[in-house]
Design a protein around this nucleic acid. Structure first.
Length: 342
DNA sequence: AACGCTTACAACCGCAGAAAC
DNA sequence: CGTTTCTGCGGTTGTAAGCGT
Protein backbone atom coordinates (compact mmCIF):
# COMPACT_ATOMS: atom_id res chain seq x y z
CA UNK A 1 0.00 0.00 0.00
CA UNK A 2 0.95 3.56 -0.10
CA UNK A 3 3.59 4.73 2.22
CA UNK A 4 3.55 8.38 1.48
CA UNK A 5 0.23 9.07 -0.04
CA UNK A 6 1.61 9.13 -3.51
CA UNK A 7 3.20 12.50 -3.19
CA UNK A 8 6.53 13.59 -4.55
CA UNK A 9 9.10 13.44 -1.85
CA UNK A 10 12.72 14.22 -1.47
CA UNK A 11 15.38 12.15 0.19
CA UNK A 12 15.85 8.44 0.09
CA UNK A 13 17.34 6.48 -2.73
CA UNK A 14 14.81 7.85 -5.18
CA UNK A 15 15.04 11.41 -4.04
CA UNK A 16 12.90 13.94 -5.85
CA UNK A 17 10.93 11.27 -7.61
CA UNK A 18 7.43 10.16 -6.99
CA UNK A 19 6.73 7.53 -4.39
CA UNK A 20 3.69 5.66 -3.31
CA UNK A 21 1.16 3.70 -5.29
CA UNK A 22 1.39 3.53 -9.02
CA UNK A 23 -1.29 5.00 -11.21
CA UNK A 24 -2.73 3.44 -14.34
CA UNK A 25 -0.96 6.02 -16.45
CA UNK A 26 2.37 5.19 -14.87
CA UNK A 27 1.76 1.49 -15.35
CA UNK A 28 0.98 2.07 -18.98
CA UNK A 29 4.16 4.06 -19.49
CA UNK A 30 6.21 1.32 -17.91
CA UNK A 31 4.53 -1.51 -19.79
CA UNK A 32 4.93 0.37 -23.02
CA UNK A 33 8.58 0.96 -22.32
CA UNK A 34 9.22 -2.70 -21.58
CA UNK A 35 7.33 -3.67 -24.70
CA UNK A 36 9.58 -1.51 -26.81
CA UNK A 37 12.90 -1.97 -25.07
CA UNK A 38 12.67 -5.09 -23.01
CA UNK A 39 13.60 -5.49 -19.40
CA UNK A 40 16.65 -4.06 -17.77
CA UNK A 41 18.23 -0.64 -17.84
CA UNK A 42 15.48 0.53 -15.56
CA UNK A 43 17.00 3.90 -15.00
CA UNK A 44 16.44 4.60 -18.68
CA UNK A 45 12.71 4.38 -18.16
CA UNK A 46 12.59 7.79 -16.59
CA UNK A 47 14.81 9.32 -19.24
CA UNK A 48 12.83 7.88 -22.10
CA UNK A 49 9.29 8.05 -20.80
CA UNK A 50 9.38 10.94 -18.38
CA UNK A 51 8.04 8.65 -15.71
CA UNK A 52 8.96 10.21 -12.38
CA UNK A 53 9.98 6.95 -10.80
CA UNK A 54 13.43 5.67 -10.02
CA UNK A 55 14.71 2.59 -11.78
CA UNK A 56 14.42 0.54 -8.69
CA UNK A 57 10.78 1.35 -8.35
CA UNK A 58 10.17 0.54 -12.02
CA UNK A 59 11.86 -2.81 -11.72
CA UNK A 60 9.84 -3.68 -8.67
CA UNK A 61 6.57 -2.61 -10.21
CA UNK A 62 7.25 -4.62 -13.32
CA UNK A 63 8.46 -7.70 -11.52
CA UNK A 64 5.73 -7.81 -8.93
CA UNK A 65 2.70 -6.48 -10.75
CA UNK A 66 2.99 -5.78 -14.44
CA UNK A 67 4.87 -8.81 -15.65
CA UNK A 68 2.13 -10.54 -17.60
CA UNK A 69 2.90 -14.11 -16.62
CA UNK A 70 2.32 -13.47 -12.97
CA UNK A 71 0.04 -15.75 -11.08
CA UNK A 72 -2.08 -13.71 -8.73
CA UNK A 73 -4.51 -14.74 -6.10
CA UNK A 74 -4.37 -16.94 -3.06
CA UNK A 75 -1.76 -19.62 -2.79
CA UNK A 76 -3.02 -23.08 -3.47
CA UNK A 77 -2.46 -25.73 -0.82
CA UNK A 78 0.21 -27.23 -3.06
CA UNK A 79 1.98 -23.92 -3.29
CA UNK A 80 1.76 -23.36 0.44
CA UNK A 81 3.28 -26.74 1.09
CA UNK A 82 5.99 -26.06 -1.42
CA UNK A 83 6.84 -22.80 0.28
CA UNK A 84 7.08 -24.55 3.61
CA UNK A 85 9.39 -27.20 2.26
CA UNK A 86 11.63 -24.81 0.43
CA UNK A 87 11.77 -22.41 3.33
CA UNK A 88 12.63 -25.25 5.62
CA UNK A 89 15.51 -26.16 3.36
CA UNK A 90 16.95 -22.82 2.44
CA UNK A 91 15.44 -20.26 4.80
CA UNK A 92 14.52 -16.74 3.80
CA UNK A 93 15.73 -17.05 0.23
CA UNK A 94 12.59 -15.61 -1.21
CA UNK A 95 13.88 -15.11 -4.70
CA UNK A 96 15.06 -18.69 -4.87
CA UNK A 97 11.85 -20.01 -3.46
CA UNK A 98 9.85 -17.98 -5.92
CA UNK A 99 11.92 -19.37 -8.77
CA UNK A 100 10.35 -22.72 -8.00
CA UNK A 101 6.84 -21.38 -7.92
CA UNK A 102 5.75 -20.30 -11.38
CA UNK A 103 4.21 -16.89 -11.56
CA UNK A 104 4.85 -16.09 -7.94
CA UNK A 105 7.07 -13.26 -6.80
CA UNK A 106 9.54 -13.19 -3.99
CA UNK A 107 7.63 -10.32 -2.44
CA UNK A 108 4.41 -12.27 -2.48
CA UNK A 109 6.00 -15.28 -0.86
CA UNK A 110 7.79 -13.14 1.67
CA UNK A 111 4.57 -11.43 2.63
CA UNK A 112 2.82 -14.74 2.90
CA UNK A 113 5.53 -16.16 5.07
CA UNK A 114 5.77 -13.18 7.38
CA UNK A 115 2.03 -13.14 7.89
CA UNK A 116 1.97 -16.85 8.51
CA UNK A 117 4.93 -16.58 10.83
CA UNK A 118 3.26 -13.97 12.96
CA UNK A 119 0.05 -15.93 13.09
CA UNK A 120 1.68 -19.17 14.08
CA UNK A 121 3.94 -17.51 16.61
CA UNK A 122 0.98 -15.82 18.18
CA UNK A 123 -0.84 -19.12 18.29
CA UNK A 124 2.17 -20.82 19.80
CA UNK A 125 2.36 -23.21 16.89
CA UNK A 126 5.49 -24.54 15.22
CA UNK A 127 6.41 -22.94 11.96
CA UNK A 128 6.11 -26.13 10.02
CA UNK A 129 3.47 -28.82 10.23
CA UNK A 130 4.93 -32.01 11.67
CA UNK A 131 4.93 -33.88 8.41
CA UNK A 132 6.76 -31.07 6.68
CA UNK A 133 9.21 -30.93 9.55
CA UNK A 134 9.95 -34.59 9.02
CA UNK A 135 10.50 -34.10 5.33
CA UNK A 136 12.83 -31.21 5.88
CA UNK A 137 14.78 -32.87 8.65
CA UNK A 138 15.24 -36.13 6.84
CA UNK A 139 16.30 -34.41 3.69
CA UNK A 140 18.78 -32.32 5.57
CA UNK A 141 20.01 -35.13 7.76
CA UNK A 142 20.64 -37.43 4.86
CA UNK A 143 21.59 -34.74 2.39
CA UNK A 144 19.57 -36.84 0.06
CA UNK A 145 19.86 -36.61 -3.64
CA UNK A 146 17.16 -39.00 -4.71
CA UNK A 147 18.14 -38.42 -8.30
CA UNK A 148 21.73 -39.50 -8.10
CA UNK A 149 23.04 -42.84 -9.21
CA UNK A 150 24.28 -45.52 -6.87
CA UNK A 151 27.66 -43.83 -6.58
CA UNK A 152 26.05 -40.67 -5.41
CA UNK A 153 26.75 -38.85 -8.63
CA UNK A 154 23.99 -36.98 -10.26
CA UNK A 155 23.28 -38.57 -13.56
CA UNK A 156 21.74 -37.01 -16.58
CA UNK A 157 18.25 -37.94 -15.68
CA UNK A 158 18.79 -37.40 -12.02
CA UNK A 159 20.57 -34.10 -11.93
CA UNK A 160 18.62 -31.27 -10.50
CA UNK A 161 16.55 -29.50 -13.05
CA UNK A 162 16.61 -25.76 -13.32
CA UNK A 163 14.15 -23.92 -11.17
CA UNK A 164 11.03 -22.40 -12.58
CA UNK A 165 12.76 -19.53 -14.18
CA UNK A 166 11.09 -16.54 -15.56
CA UNK A 167 11.77 -16.76 -19.25
CA UNK A 168 13.12 -13.37 -20.21
CA UNK A 169 13.07 -14.39 -23.84
CA UNK A 170 9.33 -14.77 -23.62
CA UNK A 171 8.19 -12.63 -20.74
CA UNK A 172 4.59 -12.75 -21.79
CA UNK A 173 4.33 -16.51 -21.65
CA UNK A 174 2.01 -17.85 -19.03
CA UNK A 175 3.17 -20.50 -16.64
CA UNK A 176 1.76 -23.81 -17.72
CA UNK A 177 -1.03 -25.21 -15.69
CA UNK A 178 -2.48 -28.64 -15.54
CA UNK A 179 -5.35 -29.96 -13.50
CA UNK A 180 -4.25 -31.04 -10.09
CA UNK A 181 -5.65 -34.19 -8.51
CA UNK A 182 -8.07 -31.98 -6.66
CA UNK A 183 -9.30 -30.64 -9.93
CA UNK A 184 -7.98 -27.14 -9.56
CA UNK A 185 -5.61 -25.77 -12.09
CA UNK A 186 -2.19 -26.07 -10.59
CA UNK A 187 1.19 -25.49 -12.12
CA UNK A 188 2.85 -27.50 -9.43
CA UNK A 189 2.45 -30.94 -10.82
CA UNK A 190 3.73 -30.72 -14.29
CA UNK A 191 6.25 -32.52 -16.38
CA UNK A 192 7.71 -29.17 -17.29
CA UNK A 193 8.64 -28.59 -13.68
CA UNK A 194 10.43 -31.74 -12.64
CA UNK A 195 11.74 -30.33 -9.41
CA UNK A 196 8.25 -30.02 -8.13
CA UNK A 197 7.50 -33.54 -9.14
CA UNK A 198 10.67 -34.63 -7.44
CA UNK A 199 9.65 -32.87 -4.29
CA UNK A 200 6.35 -34.64 -4.45
CA UNK A 201 8.25 -37.85 -4.93
CA UNK A 202 10.28 -37.08 -1.87
CA UNK A 203 7.11 -36.52 0.02
CA UNK A 204 5.90 -39.94 -0.99
CA UNK A 205 9.15 -41.47 0.18
CA UNK A 206 8.82 -39.76 3.50
CA UNK A 207 5.28 -40.85 3.88
CA UNK A 208 6.41 -44.37 3.18
CA UNK A 209 9.14 -44.08 5.77
CA UNK A 210 6.72 -42.63 8.23
CA UNK A 211 4.33 -45.46 7.62
CA UNK A 212 7.14 -47.84 8.53
CA UNK A 213 7.66 -45.92 11.76
CA UNK A 214 11.23 -45.09 10.98
CA UNK A 215 12.99 -43.01 13.62
CA UNK A 216 12.15 -39.40 13.48
CA UNK A 217 14.54 -36.59 14.22
CA UNK A 218 14.13 -34.44 17.26
CA UNK A 219 13.37 -30.81 16.66
CA UNK A 220 14.38 -27.91 18.77
CA UNK A 221 12.95 -24.49 18.28
CA UNK A 222 15.64 -22.23 16.97
CA UNK A 223 16.64 -19.25 19.02
CA UNK A 224 14.90 -15.95 18.66
CA UNK A 225 16.85 -12.87 17.84
CA UNK A 226 16.69 -9.61 19.68
CA UNK A 227 13.86 -8.34 17.53
CA UNK A 228 11.72 -11.20 18.62
CA UNK A 229 11.57 -12.70 15.17
CA UNK A 230 12.64 -16.25 14.83
CA UNK A 231 16.01 -16.72 13.28
CA UNK A 232 15.12 -18.64 10.21
CA UNK A 233 18.37 -19.04 8.46
CA UNK A 234 17.85 -22.75 8.42
CA UNK A 235 14.17 -22.79 8.59
CA UNK A 236 13.80 -21.92 12.21
CA UNK A 237 14.67 -25.39 13.40
CA UNK A 238 17.76 -27.37 13.88
CA UNK A 239 17.92 -31.09 14.11
CA UNK A 240 20.19 -32.76 16.60
CA UNK A 241 23.19 -34.52 15.23
CA UNK A 242 22.72 -33.56 11.63
CA UNK A 243 25.74 -33.42 9.40
CA UNK A 244 26.93 -30.03 8.25
CA UNK A 245 25.41 -28.63 5.15
CA UNK A 246 27.43 -28.48 1.99
CA UNK A 247 29.22 -25.27 1.31
CA UNK A 248 31.23 -26.14 -1.77
CA UNK A 249 29.96 -24.44 -4.91
CA UNK A 250 28.79 -26.91 -7.47
CA UNK A 251 25.31 -26.46 -8.67
CA UNK A 252 24.64 -24.11 -11.48
CA UNK A 253 21.50 -22.14 -11.12
CA UNK A 254 20.51 -19.04 -12.88
CA UNK A 255 19.23 -15.70 -11.81
CA UNK A 256 15.53 -15.75 -11.41
CA UNK A 257 14.86 -13.59 -14.39
CA UNK A 258 17.07 -15.38 -16.80
CA UNK A 259 16.55 -18.35 -18.92
CA UNK A 260 18.70 -21.40 -19.01
CA UNK A 261 18.91 -22.42 -22.61
CA UNK A 262 21.25 -25.26 -21.85
CA UNK A 263 20.45 -28.52 -20.21
CA UNK A 264 20.00 -28.86 -16.51
CA UNK A 265 22.57 -27.97 -13.94
CA UNK A 266 25.90 -29.51 -13.21
CA UNK A 267 24.60 -32.02 -10.76
CA UNK A 268 24.85 -32.16 -7.03
CA UNK A 269 22.03 -32.77 -4.65
CA UNK A 270 18.71 -31.12 -4.39
CA UNK A 271 19.60 -29.51 -1.13
CA UNK A 272 22.96 -28.43 -2.39
CA UNK A 273 21.47 -26.80 -5.40
CA UNK A 274 18.90 -25.03 -3.35
CA UNK A 275 21.52 -23.82 -0.95
CA UNK A 276 24.04 -22.71 -3.47
CA UNK A 277 21.78 -21.41 -6.10
CA UNK A 278 23.14 -18.71 -8.32
CA UNK A 279 25.40 -17.04 -5.85
CA UNK A 280 28.46 -18.31 -7.57
CA UNK A 281 27.61 -17.33 -11.06
CA UNK A 282 27.93 -14.05 -12.84
CA UNK A 283 24.61 -12.35 -13.02
CA UNK A 284 25.06 -11.26 -16.56
CA UNK A 285 26.56 -12.59 -19.72
CA UNK A 286 26.45 -16.17 -18.66
CA UNK A 287 26.67 -18.16 -21.89
CA UNK A 288 23.53 -20.07 -21.13
CA UNK A 289 21.57 -17.02 -20.18
CA UNK A 290 19.29 -15.24 -22.53
CA UNK A 291 18.45 -11.65 -21.98
CA UNK A 292 16.54 -9.95 -24.69
CA UNK A 293 16.58 -6.34 -25.61
CA UNK A 294 13.29 -6.29 -27.41
CA UNK A 295 9.92 -7.64 -26.59
CA UNK A 296 7.16 -9.13 -28.62
CA UNK A 297 4.68 -6.56 -29.70
CA UNK A 298 1.59 -6.54 -27.63
CA UNK A 299 -1.32 -4.38 -26.90
CA UNK A 300 -2.91 -3.96 -23.57
CA UNK A 301 -5.97 -2.58 -21.96
CA UNK A 302 -6.92 -1.76 -18.44
CA UNK A 303 -10.24 -2.77 -16.96
CA UNK A 304 -11.63 -0.98 -13.98
CA UNK A 305 -12.45 -3.10 -10.97
CA UNK A 306 -15.91 -4.49 -10.71
CA UNK A 307 -15.93 -4.40 -6.96
CA UNK A 308 -14.00 -2.31 -4.56
CA UNK A 309 -12.14 -5.23 -3.08
CA UNK A 310 -11.52 -8.70 -4.32
CA UNK A 311 -10.98 -11.66 -2.06
CA UNK A 312 -7.46 -11.77 -0.82
CA UNK A 313 -5.44 -14.35 0.98
CA UNK A 314 -7.67 -15.12 3.85
CA UNK A 315 -6.55 -15.08 7.41
CA UNK A 316 -6.72 -18.79 7.13
CA UNK A 317 -4.31 -18.98 4.27
CA UNK A 318 -3.86 -22.57 5.22
CA UNK A 319 -7.22 -22.95 3.61
CA UNK A 320 -7.81 -24.82 0.43
CA UNK A 321 -9.15 -21.92 -1.52
CA UNK A 322 -7.87 -22.49 -4.99
CA UNK A 323 -9.60 -19.70 -6.83
CA UNK A 324 -7.17 -17.49 -8.64
CA UNK A 325 -7.11 -14.34 -10.58
CA UNK A 326 -5.89 -14.31 -14.09
CA UNK A 327 -2.32 -13.37 -14.79
CA UNK A 328 -1.99 -9.64 -15.01
CA UNK A 329 -4.85 -9.04 -12.70
CA UNK A 330 -4.19 -6.48 -10.06
CA UNK A 331 -5.58 -7.91 -6.87
CA UNK A 332 -4.94 -4.80 -4.95
CA UNK A 333 -6.80 -2.47 -7.22
CA UNK A 334 -9.14 -5.15 -8.43
CA UNK A 335 -8.46 -4.15 -11.98
CA UNK A 336 -7.10 -6.11 -14.86
CA UNK A 337 -4.44 -5.61 -17.43
CA UNK A 338 -5.15 -7.47 -20.61
CA UNK A 339 -2.20 -8.23 -22.81
CA UNK A 340 -2.60 -9.41 -26.36
CA UNK A 341 0.00 -9.94 -28.99
CA UNK A 342 -0.16 -7.88 -32.11
C1' DA B 1 -21.92 3.24 14.14
C1' DA B 2 -17.48 3.57 16.19
C1' DC B 3 -13.42 1.76 17.55
C1' DG B 4 -9.43 -1.13 17.79
C1' DC B 5 -7.00 -5.04 16.26
C1' DT B 6 -5.47 -8.14 12.56
C1' DT B 7 -4.38 -9.29 7.97
C1' DA B 8 -2.68 -8.65 3.44
C1' DC B 9 0.29 -6.59 0.55
C1' DA B 10 2.42 -2.71 -2.04
C1' DA B 11 6.37 -0.32 -1.91
C1' DC B 12 10.27 1.61 0.30
C1' DC B 13 15.09 1.14 2.21
C1' DG B 14 19.80 -0.36 2.72
C1' DC B 15 23.03 -3.32 1.22
C1' DA B 16 25.84 -6.26 -1.77
C1' DG B 17 27.61 -7.98 -6.03
C1' DA B 18 28.68 -7.47 -10.76
C1' DA B 19 29.28 -4.79 -14.84
C1' DA B 20 30.65 -0.73 -17.00
C1' DC B 21 33.54 3.07 -17.25
C1' DC C 1 42.51 -0.67 -10.57
C1' DG C 2 39.35 2.43 -8.43
C1' DT C 3 34.89 4.49 -9.04
C1' DT C 4 30.30 4.65 -10.64
C1' DT C 5 26.18 2.59 -12.16
C1' DC C 6 22.97 -0.97 -12.41
C1' DT C 7 20.57 -4.76 -10.62
C1' DG C 8 18.71 -7.81 -7.31
C1' DC C 9 17.76 -9.36 -2.65
C1' DG C 10 15.93 -9.39 1.97
C1' DG C 11 14.04 -6.65 5.67
C1' DT C 12 10.82 -3.39 7.00
C1' DT C 13 7.01 -0.17 7.05
C1' DG C 14 2.55 2.10 6.04
C1' DT C 15 -2.07 1.62 4.99
C1' DA C 16 -6.59 -0.20 3.27
C1' DA C 17 -9.77 -3.66 4.19
C1' DG C 18 -11.69 -7.17 7.08
C1' DC C 19 -13.44 -8.43 11.37
C1' DG C 20 -14.81 -8.67 16.12
C1' DT C 21 -16.56 -6.17 20.04
Amino acid sequence: MARSGGGVEGGGSCGGLKKGPWTQAEDKLLVDHVRRHGEGNWNAVRRETGLQRCGKSCRLRWANHLRPNLRKGPFSPEEERQILRLHGLIGNKWARISSHLPGRTDNEIKNYWNTRLKRRQRAGLPLYPPDVEREIALLRAQNVNPFADSDGNANASGSLPPPLLYDASNPFALPPTVPSPSGSASPLINQNYPLLNQMQGIQQVFHHLASQQSPQPVFHPHHQDSSGAAALGHGGFVSAGLPPLPTRPQAAELPSNQFDSSSSGSGGGLLESLLLGDDHLPRHNHPSMVKVSSMPALSYSYREPVSSRLPVHGAGSDSDDTSHCLPGEDMHHGATWNFTFD
